[in-house]
């Protein structure tokens, strides 16, 4: 039985879809059987971020409505032999699916795949409830901004209320230069406020934009910082202890992580 992980945030545009694509591709690169589920019905995006938009025949709503078999709707990524995508419907809206149907779908997928990663829409309404319905684990994405952290806090409360305890935090789009001059909240600040476990920090990186242009997730790019950050998160998802990149020279951050993960302080 595989794991169903929902990638969520509350606020839109913080990097849920980017994170879903990179984690999925990264897990597949490590030989795991992975299926990505785009739960953002009506605003599908994961297909273009993955570069699979031209191969869609059926979608999630077709599966739920019984217009096709699950297997027919899954798009196999030709670049990575163990990676699949279940695209969202574009012409329907969130009410086309209900949480029970999502739960059943995720369960079916988890029987065949090691990881089912669900890309959650923004918001806390029906689409959110659908996306988390089948999940056993949650990754919360935020950026170092007041509005994003506030929404993340709300989401964490809602996840816990739905029985998804211990969500893990991805801090995305961190700008080390801004943190250093005190114009961006640092990692400590955000963990302090949200009080959940950190699973990774992704720097703000042009490589994300370029890779999205190409439809090839940055995790495959050895030269990219964000790619490295995602490769590390992938290994942590798999349960490995991976030291955090020394993104900040801020000693508070490094020593806290050293404590959290039992590593020596990086000098």
């Amino acid at each position: 039985m595989g794991e169903v992980i929902v990638v969520t945030s509350g606020k839109g545009g913080v990097g849920k879809t980017t994170t879903t694509a990179n984690l999925g591709t990264g897990l597949a690169l490590r030989g795991k059987n992975v299926v990505l589920v785009d739960a953002d019905i009506g605003l599908r995006n994961l297909d273009v971020v993955m570069g699979l938009e031209n191969r869609i025949v059926y979608d999630l709503v077709d599966v739920v409505d019984g217009n096709c078999r699950l297997r027919q709707a899954l798009i196999k990524d030709k670049r990575y032999s163990t990676l699949y995508l279940l695209p969202a419907a574009q012409t329907k809206d969130k009410s086309a699916v209900n949480p029970q149907q999502m739960q059943k779908l995720c369960q079916e997928l988890a029987e065949e795949y090691d990881y089912v990663i669900v890309d959650c829409p923004a918001g806390i309404e029906q689409g959110f409830k659908n996306a988390i319905a089948g999940a056993s684990r949650a990754v919360v994405v935020t950026t170092p901004e007041v509005s994003a952290v506030r929404d993340a806090d709300r989401i964490i409360g809602l996840l816990e209320a739905s029985g998804l305890r211990n969500p893990q935090l991805v801090i995305n789009r961190l700008r080390i230069d801004m943190v250093k001059r005190g114009d961006m909240m640092n990692i400590d600040d955000m963990i302090d406020i949200l009080a959940i476990d950190l699973i990774g920090v992704v720097p703000d990186d042009e490589a994300i934009v370029i890779s999205t242009n190409r439809g090839e997730p940055a995790v495959t790019n050895e030269a990219s910082m964000a790619g490295q950050a995602y490769r590390n998160i992938v290994r942590r998802i798999m349960g490995e202890d991976v030291p955090f990149m020394n993104l900040e020279s801020d000693s508070g951050f490094v020593s806290r992580l050293a404590k959290m993960f039992g590593f020596k302080k990086i000098k």
């Binding site: 007041v146 506030r150 806090d153 809602l158 114009d183 406020i193």
Partner: peptide, 25 residues
Amino acid sequence: SKPDNSKDIAKERLKLVLIHDRANV
């Protein structure tokens, strides 16, 4: 000590707003 930089202001504001949000939850 550093002057009040914008991230400290952000953190302070967040803490206050979350007290409300959390109570409402």
